[in-house]
């Protein structure tokens, strides 16, 4: 059913169009409409119109900034999301990857990125210790499969060295704690590596690593 206002609006339209006699209230509105039709029209200056047209033609090309183009923004957002989701998934999946696996480089890259984002010396030292511990696990896992990974071992030792180097720059309150962590980790690494059954050709490499770990085990804060 038509509402009263719509009915009046339709009625008015009929009266404006002259299909019904105007009377009373609607007649008044139709009269106003007629008055509007008879109003004098403001005349635009022809010169102003030509000037406007000229201005438009001389206007410098409409350079659409990429950030104002919704289509480009939509694509950029989609690509960003795709990379974020795919990247996040790859990082997550690479967490347990082992040397030689497809996702292992992703894991190492993620570690590098985390290291760059860590600012404080103590934070960096702790992160090196985490990496070093991770390398030990990877080395042992490879060993159990009969594969020696010299690069993983040297990476572990390098992480230890960097942690020790950074520990010297850490304020007193935290320095001893970091050194204690280094000692503990080196001790664990030395012990774990000592228990390996090695092939004769690999023995020298691992022995050198054990020796370095055991020397680190006794490292002390430098005052």
């Amino acid at each position: 059913m038509q509402n009263p206002e719509q009915h009046l609006a339709d009625e008015l339209e009929r009266r404006i169009n002259g299909t019904q006699n105007s009377e009373h209230e609607l007649g008044e509105l139709a009269g106003i409409a007629q008055g509007l039709k008879n109003l004098p029209r403001p005349e635009a200056n022809a010169h102003a119109k030509e000037n406007c047209t000229k201005q438009l033609l001389e206007h410098s090309p409409n350079v659409v900034r990429w950030y104002k183009n919704k289509q480009i923004l939509a694509w950029a957002a989609a690509i960003f999301l795709m990379f974020t989701i795919a990247g996040g998934g790859a990082v997550s999946a690479s967490r347990d990857s082992m040397p030689g696996e497809v996702l292992y480089p992703v894991k190492r890259l993620y570690e590098d990125a985390q290291m760059i984002l860590t600012v404080s010396p103590s934070g960096k030292a702790e992160r090196y210790l985490i990496i070093s511990e991770r390398r030990l696990k990877e080395f042992m896992a490879s060993m159990n499969l009969g594969v020696i990974q010299p690069e993983v071992l040297s990476s572990m030792l390098e992480a230890n060295r960097r942690a020790i180097s950074l520990a010297g720059d850490i304020p007193d309150s935290k320095r001893e704690l970091i050194f204690a962590e280094i000692s503990s980790l080196c001790s664990l690494q030395g012990t774990t590596l000592s228990q390996c059954c090695l092939m004769p050709e690999d023995t020298a490499l691992v022995r050198a690593a054990i020796a370095e770990c055991l020397s680190c085990q006794n490292c002390v804060p430098v005052h």
């Binding site: 719509q6 509105l29 106003i32």
Partner: peptide, 16 residues
Amino acid sequence: EGATKALQFRALTKLR
């Protein structure tokens, strides 16, 4: 069209 007629009606009422 209905909404436009209603707008026209209200506009003329306001003018009145």
